[in-house]
């Protein structure tokens, strides 16, 4: 039976798609048969981040409407074995996804996949609710910034009341993924720290992804950033996947780059 993971945040632009791509790729690299589903109907972007935008023929909505079979719509990743992508439709019809349609597709995928990673659209409206409705596990992507933290808390409220698990009296497993983290600014008191966000949202921390040039570079090239094993962000995602799978790894990239001796001595006083 497949585990359904939703990557969600409430707020837009915090790194949901970047994280979905990295998480899906990371799980596949560990040998799990994984499918990435783009739930952002109308604005399809996961295919671009995964570098398969020119191979999209059929999409999620085509499968729901039975205009194509699942096998026709699934794109097999060329770099990573065991990884498939189900792209979003670019239709302007906001009601293109139905709860029954989504359930049927997820059930069919669950027969042959280990992990189903759902990349949620921003907001807390229908699209985002559909993306999280069937989830067993939620990865809440948050930036250390007030509006993102607030929206994450709101999406946690939706997970706890409007998901299928909640309706059945169970709970969706929640993980915090803190992205675009800048340790230097945290130390200077200009950015919420990881402990602050953890304290406010009160959910377990899966990982901290540092603000990194590697992320833009990776998206420029259509390669998930986790493939860039030399980069800080790539390593941080790799750690997060290991933790997700139960490994105990220490959090890295929480401290600013080494400074000179003098500034370290004086810097500590603040």
């Amino acid at each position: 039976m497949a585990e359904i993971i939703v990557v969600t945040s409430g707020k837009g632009g915090v790194g949901k798609t970047t994280s979905s791509a990295a998480i899906g790729t990371g799980l596949a690299l560990k040998g799990f048969k994984t499918v990435l589903i783009d739930f952002d109907v109308g604005l399809r972007n996961l295919d671009l981040i995964m570098g398969c935008e020119r191979r999209v023929v059929y999409d999620f909505v085509n499968v729901i409407n039975k205009e194509a079979t699942l096998n026709q719509a699934l794109i097999r990743d060329k770099r990573t074995e065991n990884l498939y992508i189900l792209p979003a439709s670019q239709t302007r019809d906001k009601d293109a996804l139905s709860i029954d349609g989504v359930e049927a597709v997820l059930n069919e995928l669950a027969e042959s996949f280990d992990y189903i990673v759902c990349d949620s659209p921003a907001g807390i409206e229908k699209g985002a609710q559909l993306a999280l409705y069937f989830a067993d596990t939620a990865i809440v992507v948050t930036n250390p910034e007030v509006s993102s933290v607030r929206d994450s808390d709101r999406i946690l409220g939706v997970l706890q009341s409007k998901s299928r698990k909640a309706e059945q009296g169970e709970t969706v497993k929640e993980h915090l993924l803190l992205t675009r983290y800048n340790p230097g600014r945290v130390e200077a008191g200009e950015m919420l720290g990881v402990e602050d966000v953890k304290e406010i949202l009160a959910i377990p921390l899966l990982g901290v992804i540092p603000e990194s040039e590697a992320v833009l570079k990776a998206s420029n090239q259509g390669v998930p950033v986790i493939m860039d094993a030399d980069s800080d962000a790539g390593q941080a995602y790799d750690d997060a996947i290991a933790r997700f799978l139960g490994e105990d790894r220490e959090h890295r990239f929480l401290n600013a780059e080494r400074k000179g001796f003098l500034s370290r001595v004086f810097g500590r006083k603040s």
Binding site: V146, V149, V186, I200, F266, S270
Partner: peptide
Amino acid sequence: MGILSYFRSKKQTSASVAKERLQVLVAYE
């Protein structure tokens, strides 16, 4: 940073303002 931040640290940092605002807001919501 360094010596400068020693003097600045008497004032509340913007991050701690953010945390306080969030704590109140999130508790209310």
